[in-house]
Design a protein around this nucleic acid. Sequence first.
DNA 1: ATAGGGTTAG
Length: 831
Amino acid sequence: MRDAIAILASCSVTLPATHAPAPPSHHRRRRCRPSPRTNQSLNSTAPSLHSTVRWDYASTSRNRNRKRLEYYTDLTSNLARDGRFRDLFMIAESFVVSGGKPSQFVALLDVNIVSAGISRMIKDGRLGSLIEVLGGLRKLGFAVVELFDGLAVEALRQVCRRQLGKRDDVEEIVSLLETLQGLGFSTKEFVAPSEIIRLCVYRRTPSAAIRYAQIFPQVHTLLCTIMIEFGKKRDLVSALSVFEVSKQNQGCPNMYAYRTIIDVCGLCGDYLKSRSIYEELLDCKFIPNIYVFNSLMNVNASDFSYMLHIYKQMQKVGVTADLASYNILLKSCCLAARAHLALDIYRDVQHLESKGALKLDVFTYCTMIKVLADARMWRMALEIKEHMLLAGVIPNTVTWSSLISACANAGLAEQAIQLFEEMLQAGCEPNSQCCNALLHACVEAHQYDRAFRLFKSWKENGIKMSVRKDFHWMNKINDYACSKHENSSTITCRTSDSEHPSFPIRFSFAPTTSTYNILMKACGTDYYHAKALMDEMKMEGLSPNNITWSILIDICGGSGNVHGALQILRSMHQAGTQPDVVTYTTAIKVTYNTLLRARSQYGSLQEVQQCLAIYQDMRKAGYKPNDFYLKLLIEEWCEGVIQQNKQNKGQIASDRASLGPQSLLLEKVAEHLQDSNAESLSIDIRGLTKIEARIMVLAVLRMIKEKYNPGDSVRDDLLIILEEEPSGCGSRHETGSTEAIASLLQYDLGLEVLSVGSVDGRNFNGGFDISFLYPNSKVLQRRDLPLKLESPSRRPVPLQRLKVTKGSLHHWLQKGGASTSRSDSSPSAEK
DNA sequence: ATAGGGTTAG
């Protein structure tokens, strides 16, 4: 550097140019201090840090100039060789400012020397400034990529990896890659695109992903890949922002992008969004292509009528259905359990095939088998297998699994085993799912022992298969066996000699979580066996899932150990598995069956509260209730209030279907049965269906009854809050709820019921008597009941509340006693 | 640079 300073000292210096070089540092200022003369002129104008040196060629003789140039060449070469590029750039800048051309400057430098300098930087570990240096060299006009040898490229990769390793700023790494790409590097060699995309998706930064994609010529393809990746992470919002960028391509809708985002909607479970995207496309007056239609139908396959609507629209705009369309149609039939419709479509497609329009594939046959399997039409499922063999389509593992499942669903273990053997003979590799299907078939047929024997044998010996030499899929098998043999020790393949008609292959059997789940089901009520299997499963490195825990809870509860079952629910939490709806429902069912049904009598308030507590946990965990068992529980428990239940049971059972899908009932019952609410004697039945309102009222009465100690007095009337507008068409409100409740209270329970209405918005207490106490309600026939509640005044008053008087409540409690309702109800428990 | 199928839990 001393040399450089010497040279600089002999030069005249001008003021900085308008453009500024790289950011200054103390280090640099100190080293590049200009001459005293320069200093003065600098000080007199501005204390700028960005000083620039200019060579004054005019004042030197030609000779001196040449000499200086030589010296200068040496200097720059030395700087470059040492990797001191900042100094080099400064000199280059002054060279240019003083009238030299960048190309002249570059000509002074030997590429190999610059390259060596870069290696030096890397060797010194100065990777941080590598990118900056590259930018500078590029600015000078160097073909930067050529300066990089293998080692240097490796160093760049390290720079990228280090930046990637930070993982805190995705935009940063993308900026780096943008720079490198701009310098002419192929950044794919530094970091795999999938890795960048994965990071962007993980960080939920679609903006960075979009910028990254724009580095490459095939932006649109990459953007679609990114959309799918966001979709897999169920991040529809990010996927949609990528979609916004990619949906227009050269002025017309990018069908590939549209198709992709529709698929993503499917992945994210937002099929309604897929519909609005489709509408948006239609608004552009462009006809979607077959891919868009197929994706849309596929995403909406669970809504058969919508799927069909799209199918028809597709025909209307003249887009011809292809095999995939038909396969999706069949899948939709399968989901809608419309086996016969599927058979019709199947015939149509077969007809098309006979005309040569298309060729059914393994998906078509497989879906057909599944539809029929679900419909328990196992014979026809097996017929489909024959069709496909005749058509020359080779069944794959999925096909065989479906066939085995068809038998499993029909409880045909023997048939399932036969199919399994057939599969092995055909040389089809049995995978775990397929083995699971067979085990399931045994379990469905109650052949538990057989399931365990199969499992044991597979685990110990693997799955042996003896492939017949003359089998017509022979070629495939040979290919398979040999290719597998090379890189896997799981299969032993002895090539046959021509005398032997078959050769043995052995597959290893890898049980999965599902395998253990199925086997646990086979434990019946043997909790310890099930628990042992769960432990074994963990030993195998498999982790129990929701289903595993649900089964364990079920078995434990089924063996009569409710507390154990609830303990398992807690262990599950502790093990870090979030219970899902089914787990909770299992726990509720266990509690319900064990506490209430198994004893063939109704449970106590406390027991019901236990069930409800689980229910409320489930709600807190954010699950939508799926609560068949809980409804059943409350219903039966509540009906226990009624003394003469024999006749009512039948009616209630038939009314079960009318229970609404919403959980309002359960919410309300749970709310009322909480201890804190025990004293507030009002029941809000707004929004409930007739049958739900009945359950609700009975539940509260039951609670009151159980809480009542003989001798206590009833302090308050019981209020029942009714729908504000009885005639208003609230979606769930049914007419006649009020009458039904009133008759229940009066005639079935013998309570005194008053109507409390409002006149001109004013509530008034006291109300009017709509009935009298009927101490002997059994003698009354239903048809004798007053169907309308009338006000004593001429003008009917809109009903808002019913009041059960405390006097009649007291009478009812005294008469019945807290325990009667439990002993008298031994009803329809067996079913 | 494109879709479509199989097992287990209430």
